[in-house]
């Protein structure tokens, strides 16, 4: 029922993870796995592009928090982009914006890593 997809774009010192679909436990676990692989491969500057992510539930948010923490343990950074107004409001309410940047588009998110 929930169609989702993850695309990875690696470029020099940073990588972009783009998710599409409903970010729940299933997509979130795949996202976390991709992030772990990137971190293990030395990418500690990540952007998660959520432009094609229709909905994010609280379990999906919990997985994003784990990625933030994994990056901070390696002194890395994470920026989000492509959030809807509701998603951005939820991220700010749950303090994600305190530990990760939120930007309107991918280019700006990369530039601010």
């Amino acid at each position: 029922m929930n169609k989702f997809d993850i695309q990875i774009r690696e470029d020099g010192e940073h990588a972009v993870i783009e998710t599409a679909g409903y970010l729940n436990d299933a997509l979130g676990e795949q996202l976390a796995e991709k992030a772990r692989e990137l971190i293990q491969n030395g990418y500690t500057q990540l952007v998660i592009n959520l432009e094609k992510t229709t909905l994010i539930n609280s379990i999906g948010i919990s997985i994003l928090i784990e990625i933030i923490e994994a990056l901070h343990e390696r002194e890395g950074a994470l920026n989000f982009c492509g959030l809807s107004a509701t998603q951005e409001r939820t991220f700010r309410m749950m303090a994600l914006a305190k530990y990760a940047g939120i930007f309107p588009d991918e280019e700006t998110a990369i530039a601010n890593l």
Partner: peptide
């Protein structure tokens, strides 16, 4: 349903 596992940022939890 606290978010995530115990970690660095307790205010997130």
């Amino acid at each position: 349903r606290l978010l995530g596992s115990p970690g660095v940022h307790t205010d997130l939890r």
